[in-house]
Amino acid sequence: MSSSCKDLMAALKDCLMHSDCVVKQGNLPSDCLKHHMDELPQECKSLRKATYECKRGMLDMRRRFRGN
């Protein structure tokens, strides 16, 4: 993974670990992402989308030359 996506991934992990889905309900962060997306705060949803776009940009040949 490129260094541009590492910061987003770290922020997403931090957001998930402090969300109610993990803290109060005791779910795993991966379980919250897969099955409890509606319970996550808007910040985590935005970080998830940004992470997805960053990873997608790494595979898109047009974006490789332009950058993320």
Rank of each mutant, 00 (worst) to 15 (best):
R66C: 08
S46F: 12
C32W: 01
R64T: 14
C44Q: 02
C44M: 03
R62W: 13
S19Y: 06
D20Y: 00
K6L: 10
L40T: 06
R63W: 11
K45M: 08
D38H: 15
C15R: 00
A11R: 14
A50Y: 04
A10N: 07
M9S: 13
G57K: 07
C5L: 05
L8Y: 06
K34S: 10
Y52S: 11
V22K: 03
V22T: 07
R48M: 15
R56E: 10
K55D: 00
A50D: 11
S4L: 12
H18G: 06
K34R: 15
R66Y: 12
T51N: 11
S4M: 07
A11C: 05
M17A: 11
K55F: 14
R48S: 15
H36V: 01
E43C: 05
C44H: 04
C5T: 06
S46M: 08
N68W: 13
K45L: 13
T51L: 15
S2Q: 03
E43F: 10
L40C: 05
E53F: 09
H36T: 01
L47T: 02
S46H: 13
H35W: 11
M17Y: 09
F65G: 11
T51R: 02
L47M: 04
L28F: 07
M61L: 14
D20V: 07
Q42V: 09
E39L: 15
D38I: 11
H36R: 10
L47G: 02
M58V: 09
N68M: 11
C44K: 05
R48P: 00
D7Q: 11
H36N: 11
L40D: 04
G57N: 15
D14L: 08
M9R: 13
H18Y: 03
S30V: 12
E43S: 14
N68L: 11
D38C: 05
K6I: 09
K55M: 13
S2W: 04
G57P: 08
K49N: 14
L28H: 09
S2V: 09
T51G: 06
A11P: 00
K6D: 10
A50I: 04
D60G: 02
D7M: 10
H18R: 14
H18F: 07
L33H: 03
M37D: 08
L28S: 13
Q42T: 12
D20A: 05
T51S: 08
M9P: 00
D14G: 01
D20S: 10
C44S: 04
K34Y: 02
D31C: 00
L40S: 00
A10R: 09
G57C: 09
K55C: 13
K13L: 04
S46E: 14
C21E: 04
D60A: 10
S19I: 02
S30W: 02
N27H: 14
K24C: 01
M37L: 11
R48G: 15
S3K: 05
